[in-house]
Design a protein around this nucleic acid. Structure first.
Lengths: 154, 154
DNA sequence: CCTGAATAGGGCACTCTGCTCACTATTTTT
DNA sequence: AAAAATAGTGAGCAGAGTGCCCTATTCAGG
């Protein structure tokens, strides 16, 4: 496994600060040549340091202003099938398999409280799902970030 | 508030399929002129349909292969200060304020179980934090997606 | 019937990209 | 110590994409 050196970290920092910035701009910022930046970026991509590109879409713009997290308790041996069933529910935007109280942590978006109630029902209706616990997200008090981790590497 | 029409939805679909695709490519795919695509994208940007750009970085590449979710119960009137304190912990990559069982749902990354234990301790040490419940994420069984929602508008 | 919005098509200067090549340091291997 | 791999630099070039401009056409609503 490839491990990042200081220059790589600086690259990632610069990219976090401005994900749109071009190779030319990065080279300029870090005082490297464009070739070097390009080579390192390619290496980072190949090594899997990037999960990909993203133009993040606001669910609210799509008409789903509410986000909720639903803990799902299931019959564990049916887990695989349940995941397949859940994947069919469009309002589920993400799900993690968990080790802990719940078996699954599901993130859903919805139009309003009634919609959330309906989605919860749909989840409960899946064969093998035993119980759910719903929590409405009031806000993202710490928006997703990796900057502090990058900064610590100096 | 601007509401998306069919063409906008198709644009977002095409972008979800390939976030890197250029205006030229989008115009080509949808059978529109480049000017139209550019105009619509600008409108979408201005209307807040995009949350921004992202070159997603793999925390594992940074040396944090583990992800966990920690439910945090707090003295509610100290919530604001607690959020500030939590924001100082670099391993916290995201946090939501919740209405439900817990007051906060915190997402952390860590190097190993011992590291998670330490981070949990740091959270508990914050003034006003009463209790935490930690769950280790075993995997992202449904990766973040908005495609099904977009497709439904078809 | 007229107006305004959306779209299309053309054009132009500029930047970025992907690629290649030659040259220089630095480090590793033999 | 000599040879070889590795990383970086600087230059150049063709192609693609962008941002911006202007104009013509279509079409729905007043």
């Amino acid at each position: 496994m490839y491990s990042l050196d200081k220059t790589d970290t600086q690259l990632l920092q610069a990219l976090s600060a401005d994900p749109r910035s071009t190779f030319v701009a990065l080279a300029d910022t870090l005082g490297l040549s464009r070739n070097t930046v390009q080579a390192r970026m390619k290496r980072l991509e190949d090594s899997g340091a990037f999960l990909g590109f993203d133009r993040r879409i606001n669910p609210a713009a799509l008409g789903y202003p509410l986000t909720a997290f639903i803990e799902v308790h299931v019959q564990q041996k049916r887990l695989a099938q349940i995941v397949i069933d859940l994947a069919l529910i469009p309002e589920i935007v993400q799900a993690h398999g968990m080790s802990g109280q719940a078996d699954l942590l599901v993130r859903v978006v919805c139009t309003d409280a009634a919609d959330l109630f309906r989605i919860d029902g749909t989840i409960l209706a899946c064969d093998g799902v035993e119980r759910t616990e719903t929590s409405l997200a009031m806000g993202e008090v710490i928006p997703y970030r990796l900057t502090p981790l990058l900064d610590r590497r100096g």
